[in-house]
Design a protein around this nucleic acid. Structure first.
Length: 107
DNA sequence: CTAGTGACCCAAC
DNA sequence: GGTTGGGCCACTA
């Protein structure tokens, strides 16, 4: 894989910390990384993540509690989350219940 | 260098 | 509740 930027590595590292049965938002991950305005980069990082890596990418969703992937990918992601006990209501995850707050935000 | 793109976010209407 | 438009910033051509 290419080094590209250490930002990806940082993001992957955080994503790897998300507990099973919980979810995190793109913006939330960005905050935990210390980059409050880099929500999109989280999306990039996940899109660019190395094949076969041990990264629970499926636990990352958007701030609306919905899956950002196109239809087919969304189904796969939803299946993985449900397999961990995450419940979808009307096609979305209630963040107030399942959102994982990291240990603390960098402020 | 500029321009376009994107697994995003949010305030306003 | 839904849509619109602006902002954000790394990456690519």
């Amino acid at each position: 894989m290419k080094r590209q930027s250490d930002l990806y590595g940082t993001i992957w590292k955080i994503v790897r910390r998300i507990p099973r049965g919980k979810v995190a938002t793109y913006g939330g991950i960005a905050r935990l990384c210390g980059f409050p305005r880099h929500a999109r980069l989280v999306g990039y990082a996940l899109h660019n993540l190395p094949h076969g890596a041990d990264i629970p990418w499926h636990r990352v969703i958007n701030s609306q509690g919905r899956i950002s992937l196109p239809r087919s990918g969304a189904l796969r992601q939803m299946a993985l989350l449900e397999g961990e006990g995450v419940v979808f209501l009307r096609g979305r995850v209630p963040l107030h219940v399942y959102e994982w707050k990291g240990k603390r935000k960098v402020r």
